[in-house]
C-alpha cells in the first residue's frame, strides 16, 4: 500500500534567538524521523512534553518545513483539528463559525451552508447568537469542536483534544472522532492516554527527544 504522507529523515531545529548579552543557540525538536502514514490508518503518537509531538504534526500538516530530510505528500490534504481557531470573543457564535471555518480552508459559502449543522452539533441553544466572551469554557469548547469537525482533510491530525467540554460532550466529541477514524479517514492522534490509543489506533509511535523511539502495531 502506498503511504499518504511520508517523512524521510526529517529533522527540525529551532533557533533560540540571542540578544547582545546572550548568543543564539539551537534546539533539535525532531531528529531524523522516518515515518509513513497509510490510507485509512490511525497512527498514535506518544511521548512526553517536549518530545517533538506537536512539531511532528506541524511538519505533517505542511505548516513547518523541515530543516533536513523531506516530506512526501502526493497532493493529499493534511490538516490539524483546529479548535477555536481565530475566535474573536466579541463576535457571536455564528460569526465565529464562519470565520473559523474559512480559516480552516472552507469558502464562505461552504461554511454558511453548514452553519445549522454546526449550531445543532454545538448544542448551546440561544448562546449561538451571543458574543463568545459570554460563553463558559465548556460552551466555547463545544462550539470550537463543532466547527473543527466540519472540515474533511485526507489526513486529520489531532493534538490532544479529546478531553473537551463536559462529560456528555466529551463522549459526543469522542464518538464523532471515532466515527471519522472508523470511516476510513487517515488520522494521526497525539495523546497521553494509553487506553485511548489502544482503542483507536492501528499503530503507535513513541517519540523521545525528537527521535522515533519505538513503533508498535496495536
Amino acid at each position: 500500500m502506498e503511504p499518504v504522507v511520508s517523512l524521510v529523515d526529517v529533522g527540525v531545529r529551532y533557533k533560540r534567538k540571542g540578544s547582545i548579552f546572550r548568543r543564539s543557540s539551537y534546539y533539535q525538536a525532531l531528529e531524523s524521523v522516518n515515518l509513513e502514514i497509510f490510507p485509512g490508518e490511525t497512527l498514535g503518537v506518544l511521548g512526553r512534553n517536549g518530545a517533538g509531538k506537536s512539531t511532528l504534526l506541524r511538519v505533517l500538516a505542511g505548516i513547518l518545513h523541515p530543516d533536513q530530510g523531506e516530506v512526501i505528500n502526493n497532493g493529499h490534504s493534511v490538516s490539524l483539528l483546529a479548535l477555536q481557531a481565530g475566535f474573536d470573543p466579541v463576535l457571536n457564535g455564528h460569526e465565529n463559525a464562519i470565520l473559523s471555518g474559512m480559516l480552516q480552508g472552507l469558502t464562505r459559502k461552504e461554511v454558511t451552508s453548514r452553519v445549522d449543522e454546526i449550531r445543532e452539533y454545538a448544542d448551546i441553544g440561544e448562546f449561538f447568537n451571543e458574543p463568545v466572551r459570554t460563553y463558559s469554557t465548556g460552551m466555547r469548547a463545544r462550539l470550537g469542536f463543532a466547527i473543527a469537525t466540519i472540515t474533511r482533510p485526507d489526513v486529520l491530525l489531532i493534538d490532544e483534544v479529546l478531553g473537551v467540554g463536559d462529560q456528555e460532550f466529551r463522549e459526543k466529541s469522542e464518538q464523532t472522532l471515532t466515527t471519522r477514524i472508523k470511516s476510513g479517514q487517515s488520522v494521526v492522534l497525539v495523546t497521553h492516554s494509553q487506553a485511548q490509543t489502544r482503542h483507536l489506533c492501528d499503530r503507535l509511535v513513541e517519540l523521545e527527544h525528537g527521535l522515533v523511539h519505538a513503533v508498535e502495531r496495536v
Binding site: 481565530g86 474573536d88 466579541v90 463576535l91 460569526e95 464562519i98 470565520l99 474559512m102 480559516l103 469558502t107 464562505r108
Partner: peptide
C-alpha cells in the same frame, strides 16, 4: 481574498 475581506469585516464589527 475572501478570507482577508471576511476577517477584516468581522474585525470591524468586533
Amino acid at each position: 481574498f475572501g478570507l482577508i475581506w471576511t476577517k477584516a469585516m468581522f474585525n470591524l464589527h468586533s
